[in-house]
Amino acid sequence: THPATAGKVPAGSGGGVAPAARWKPPADPLAGFGAALAALEGKLRAEQIGYLPHTPLSAARRPPAGSAEHITATWQRLHMALLRLPAHLREEWRVQARETAEAAGLAVTAEDASDPDVIVPGLPQGLRAAERIPLVVAAPRSAAMSVREEIHNKLGTSPDTLMDLPFADPRPMWAVRAEQALRLVDLDPELHVAVMVEDQPSSLASEEARLGYRQRLDSLLESAGSSQADDWPADSRLGAAHELDMVLGGLVHKRPAATDSWWWQWRTGVSEVLAPLAESAGYRLVPKAYSRWTMYDIDAYTVKNSVPGQSGEPLVQWVLWTPLQRKGGSAGNERKGRIVMRPQPQYG
């Protein structure tokens, strides 16, 4: 018998106690929302097989279905997967996710829905805070103020010294992008990374792998930071920065994200940190759009051990290591990059 009705006589009943079986507890809205999100995630992966493999999620925790932990994990996975889609498809699926939340009485705020920096919208009732990672960093020194202390230590900077750095110093932007990269590694259970030139990208699903990534990133942040603080020669500064680019921007998925996806824009932002350093050393970022690359471009601007991607996609599908071009067309290129490209049988 429900406590609210125990011993009470309903009006017009003629006396007696209302049967306990007539009382039904309200359906759990979280359980219904969890099921709806799971269905949406399954539909997304089935329809976007070109970007999202229809396989078990490598590091997804499996809390009890319908629990708050299950809902927030699914919500996060869903929105991280959307970052890999072409821009217009991402927006369509974000709308579906918002409508699913609204139907369960958990509406996404207008601010989260419209803020371009929100990659995972927040959920009300304390379920989840919004996750913001800006693609465009208009004021890197100000943004670097809130970067974790260990990143500043490796770069030889601090919040107190950022404003005193030379205008062209790349360390504030490195600090911001490094903070973002570490956050993305924690958020996305399906990320892989190319840590060394000779390696294939390896999964970051395990804590051991994520620790190895952080250690390698720390090492290269320290080297690149020293190149700036100690005023190394221009070519040496570029070399240290290029090595950092490989790990800082070498994050990739098993099926590479679309060329106009959020991820591609983020990777482009990492590459652009190299531009002034390349200029000072007689190099430049390869100006040709990757979607129009030919086998000649691959031979000229990349190392030979590139990674096979997916058939049916553009020849160059992802950038693991930013390709650079020596200015003036002179012979020799010591700053080649590395890419994910179409499998060999598909070469034109």
Rank of each mutant, 00 (worst) to 15 (best):
T5N: 15
K8P: 06
A11W: 05
G14K: 06
V17H: 12
D28P: 07
P29Q: 08
G34I: 01
A35G: 12
A35E: 10
E41M: 10
G42K: 08
R45K: 13
E47I: 07
Q48H: 12
I49G: 14
G50W: 11
H54A: 13
T55G: 00
T55I: 00
R61P: 13
P63M: 05
P64F: 04
P64Q: 01
H70S: 14
I71M: 06
A73H: 04
T74D: 07
M80E: 07
E91M: 13
E91Q: 14
Q96L: 11
E99C: 04
A104D: 07
A110S: 15
A110C: 11
A113F: 00
A113I: 00
S114W: 03
L123Q: 06
P124Y: 05
L127G: 10
A129Q: 11
A130V: 09
E131W: 07
A138I: 11
D164L: 12
L165Y: 01
P166T: 07
P166N: 11
H192S: 14
V197H: 00
E198Y: 01
E198V: 09
P201E: 03
S202E: 05
L204V: 09
S206C: 05
S206N: 03
E207T: 15
Q215P: 08
G225A: 09
S226A: 12
L238E: 05
A240Q: 07
L248E: 03
G250H: 02
P256G: 06
P256A: 08
S261M: 03
W264E: 06
R267S: 08
R267F: 01
G269D: 10
E272K: 14
V273L: 07
L277C: 02
P287Q: 05
K288M: 06
R292S: 15
M295V: 14
Y301E: 03
P308M: 04
Q310K: 12
S311L: 02
G312E: 03
P314V: 01
G328V: 10
E334V: 08
R338K: 12
I339M: 06
I339E: 00
I339N: 01
R342I: 14
Q344N: 07
